[in-house]
């Protein structure tokens, strides 16, 4: 009988705990607990990935850490994927999603975004010397990741270029690593996503792959934030602008995309600054 009572007590305790864990408005909660829960990817090189020492590193990790530092908070990293990053913000499981996410209007209907903190565009990665321009990819298979804007963009591109089978010629995988493997073994002629991601992977096997053609979409990255919490959004925006103003942003950027890295990607644009 005794053990039954204990079990009942445990169940009751769990229920009480579940009730207290209710998420309130993000700003108040963060200021009270001094903990920011940030959604970060795990397999995007050099955005956020596990390195040889099994540490979770990358540009997004550093940006998130810097934002937390500026607010005097501790950062709690939550692993997200292209599937979960929006759902988690919606559900309040994370306070911000720093997960190389393009700011899109369709997405802005469900969550809010910070100002653009990174400028990217979509390209196609292909074996060196095989393709010259986008037109060459008509009738060829192209890999993308499921649930990304690049999947829609590349389908539209093929459709415009007059590929009748654009639906089936785009193969959507679950992970970036899987796309790259499909490209390496020749299953697909090209892999299309944001150019920095492509650079990151192409740098792993130097000289084998190259980017083909121009950007065919703009991909302004924003930090995903909970809907309708303007105080919290202000705080994040200010942190990003301060970072830019005092040069910390440039330092982080150069660490991952500077001329000395294998992923060299010149910084050509400026983030939005408010006087």
């Amino acid at each position: 009988m005794r053990s039954w009572k204990w079990q009942m007590a445990a169940v009751a305790l769990v229920l009480v705990w579940a009730q207290t864990a209710l998420a309130g408005p993000t700003f108040d909660r963060v200021m009270k607990t001094k903990v920011i829960r940030a959604g970060i990817m795990t397999d995007s090189i050099p955005g956020a990935y596990y390195n040889e020492k099994k540490e979770w590193v990358g540009m997004d990790v550093d940006i998130a850490e810097e934002i937390a530092r500026r607010m005097g908070c501790k950062l709690e990293r939550v692993a997200v994927s292209n599937k979960t990053r929006i759902a988690f913000v919606q559900q309040g499981r994370i306070d911000m999603s720093v997960a190389n996410m393009t700011h899109k209007r369709e997405r802005d209907r469900s969550i809010d975004f910070s100002i653009t903190y990174f400028f990217d565009g979509q390209k196609i990665l292909a074996p060196k010397g095989k393709f010259k321009e986008h037109k060459d990819f008509v009738g060829q298979k192209i890999a993308t990741m499921q649930g990304t804007t690049s999947e829609i963009n590349v389908k539209n591109l093929l459709k415009e270029l007059g590929d009748p089978k654009y639906e089936t010629n785009v193969i959507s995988f679950q992970k970036e690593s899987e796309c790259f493997q499909a490209l390496r073994m020749g299953r697909v002629a090209g892999w299309s996503t944001d150019s920095t991601i492509l650079l990151g992977y192409a740098a792993q096997v130097p000289g084998e792959f190259e980017l083909v053609g121009d950007f065919f979409s703009n991909e302004p990255y924003g930090i995903g934030l909970p809907e309708d919490d303007s105080k919290w959004r202000d705080e994040v925006n200010f942190a990003i602008q301060d970072m830019w103003a005092d040069g910390t942003y440039k330092k982080i950027y150069d660490k991952w995309y500077g001329p000395d890295t294998p992923y060299y990607f010149p910084l050509t644009e400026k983030i939005e600054m408010w006087p």
Partner: peptide
């Protein structure tokens, strides 16, 4: 492996 069967399609609707 990128086959667009039922589970994949439901995930697709989710992500779109």
């Amino acid at each position: 492996v990128g086959v667009a069967e039922l589970c994949w399609q439901s995930q697709q609707i989710e992500s779109l």
